[in-house]
């Protein structure tokens, strides 16, 4: 029990003293998670809208594939991305292995199905009378799409928060694609795994606290936006 208490004290010390290793990992985490979220929302939102709004042949099969992707293990994504961007891989020349960009790509693959699936479900659940109401008020196709998205903004926000939670806490992709290089590709989660392996629980707890704080701030901001 003592080491947990000591961990909390150490955590506060590390954060207050602006420990460079800790803050580099924090910064790397923020950078990759923000990048991957921007990419996954940018691609997932329109895909989710199309999937939820329109009926087309093969829609059910596409939903099944997407739902399967929701359960993709992060180590599998890490492995697949690694295979593609390693020296021997088809994208090896881009030099993305052991970079934050590489991690962001992997995390985008992780977050994309979450954003797409939740957005599609949210759109599918839109009240049937909404479209009829918009048409009867004279809305054109663009107005209908924009208004539908605005009407389900909280559902889309939930999709983003869920995906962000998954991205922020994953280890497999960051470890395999990033390589856990100190001051370079080490993220909070890979750092926690490493410190715990070394028996340095205090450092691990400190980083864990930072992770929780980031998640808390993000959710607090979104909750504030929702009230607005």
């Amino acid at each position: 029990m003592d080491f947990i208490v000591a961990g909390f004290i150490k955590a506060i010390e590390l954060l207050i003293s602006c420990d460079s290793a800790t803050w580099t990992a924090v910064w790397a985490t923020i950078k990759v998670s923000t990048g991957s979220m921007l990419l996954s929302i940018g691609a997932g939102l329109p895909c989710g809208f199309l999937l939820g709004y329109f009926d087309f042949k093969g829609k059910k099969h596409l939903r099944t594939i997407l739902d399967t992707m929701l359960a993709l293990p992060t180590v599998f994504i890490g492995l697949a991305v690694y295979a593609f961007i390693s020296r021997q891989g088809p994208l090896g020349e881009l030099g993305l292995l052991f970079t934050l960009t590489g991690i962001a790509i992997g995390q985008t693959i992780l977050a994309f199905p979450i954003v797409t699936a939740i957005t599609a479900t949210t759109i599918e659940n839109i009240d049937h009378d909404l479209k009829l109401t918009l048409v009867s008020l004279g809305a054109g196709r663009r107005n209908i799409i924009a208004t539908c998205l605005w009407e389900v903004r909280y559902g889309i926000l939930a999709a983003a928060v869920t995906a962000y939670g998954r991205v922020l806490t994953e280890v497999g992709i960051s470890m395999m694609v990033g390589g856990n290089i100190k001051y370079h590709t080490r993220t909070i989660t890979t750092a926690i795994a490493l410190e715990t392996n070394k028996g340095l629980f205090a450092d691990g707890i400190a980083l864990g606290l930072v992770l929780i704080m980031i998640a808390f701030i993000v959710n607090l901001s979104l909750s504030f936006l929702r009230k607005q």
């Binding site: 009240d127 009378d129 909404l130 009829l132 109401t133 048409v135 009867s136 008020l137 004279g138 809305a139 054109g140 196709r141 208004t147 009407e151």
Partner: peptide
Amino acid sequence: FSTSIRSKISLLTQKPYLL
């Protein structure tokens, strides 16, 4: 959904949907 008439005709449904 023709552009020429969509601004001329308005329907109030049985359970009106408010934005």
